[in-house]
Structure formats: structure tokens, C-alpha cells
Computed example of a mutant assay.
Amino acid sequence: MQTPLPIILASSSPRRRELLQAIGMPFTVMTSDVDEETSPGLSPAEIVESLALRKARAVAGKEKEGLVLGADTIVVLDGRVLGKPKDEEDAFRTLQALQGREHTVYSGVALVDAATGREEVAHCSTLVRIRPLAEREIRAYIATGEPMDKAGSYAIQGLGATIVEGIEGDYFTVVGLPLHLTAALLSRFGVHLL
């Protein structure tokens, strides 16, 4: 696939890299390392859009050309944002709260043209149901290490798939990069995947 601009992924996430590779998107990676604190009172949609845009802008500001792709994902339960766990006990508390219930995953996607500064940003949300879990199961899952760098302390594309009872919405939103939304935003910059 030829793209009119080089694509730069502003993320260190191996999952986002794998998703772009799976759809044949040529890209390079440049991590953004931005502060991910947000103002209080923002909606989940505003949080993921602002963070995705902040990441893309940070990388675009260092480049002369290219289309910079930023993304952010959060897990929301009862109006509370559940980020990445600080430690194993934090992961346990998160999974204990999620088990047997539904929560919503939000993923924001932003594109910034480094040469012109033009920006596009949007988000998707997906409802996820985690099956009831015994304390032993939660501890065993945490012992694998998989939950430790994931929003909500689980990875739907890994062993965490065994605790997900169902989803309503887009699977890739839960993984961390809604591909249909990414393709739609890319098309606004003349990059067409099909």
C-alpha cells in the first residue's frame, strides 16, 4: 500500500503495532512520552480524545513531515476511570471490581499532519462483560504478568480473553486501536486502506 505521507505511530504499545502490521500499514514508531494527567470533569470520550491528540501533537512537533497517529484507551466502571495497575494488589482490586459486571472501554484516535498541523480526532466505545471470577483465578491471572501494563488490568487479545464473557461493540476498541475508525480518519488525509 502506498501512502501520500509517511505514517508515524506515537505509541510504544506492541498491540497497536501488531494491529497496524496486520492490516498492511507501513509505519514507523516514535513514542510520545507525554504527561497523561487530564483535567477533572472531562467525560471518558474527552479524556481519550485529548490524550490521543496530545500524544500525536508531541511527536508531530518533532517532525517536518508525516501523519502522526496517536491513541489512548481507558476502562470505565460506574463512571470511574480504571487505568493501568500500579502493582499486583491494584490489579487485584480492579479485577475484583470488574468481575461479574459490565464496563465500558473507550479508545481515542488522533491524526496530526506534521507539516501542516491539521488534526482529526474521534473515539469509539465498547461494552465488555467480565465473567464471575474466584479469587484464585484473579491471583493466577495476575501471576502471569499480563495485567500489569493494561488499562483495566486485562488483555482481551491474550489470556484475558478467558475472563471476557462478551462484548457489545468493536473488539479492536478494547485492544486499543479501533481499526475502522483509524481507517476513516486516515481517509480524510488521502490514505485509503482499500
Rank of each mutant, 00 (worst) to 15 (best):
T116H: 04
T126H: 06
D78W: 03
A97E: 14
H103S: 09
G117D: 09
T116K: 14
V112L: 10
D78Y: 04
A122G: 12
A115E: 12
A97M: 07
T126F: 12
G108F: 13
S107M: 02
G108I: 07
A122L: 10
G83Q: 01
E120Y: 11
R101Y: 01
G100S: 03
V121H: 07
V121Q: 10
A122M: 01
G117N: 01
H103T: 10
H103L: 08
T126C: 15
D90R: 01
S107E: 00
L95W: 04
T116A: 08
E88S: 15
L77D: 00
T94Q: 12
F92Q: 10
D78R: 13
D113A: 05
G108C: 09
E102T: 07
A122D: 15
S125H: 15
A91N: 05
Q96R: 09
L98A: 09
E119G: 05
V112I: 14
K84P: 06
L111D: 08
V112Q: 08
A114P: 04
C124V: 12
R93M: 11
E89Y: 04
K86A: 13
C124S: 14
G79Y: 04
G83V: 00
Y106T: 04
T94D: 08
E119P: 10
D90M: 05
A91W: 07
H123S: 15
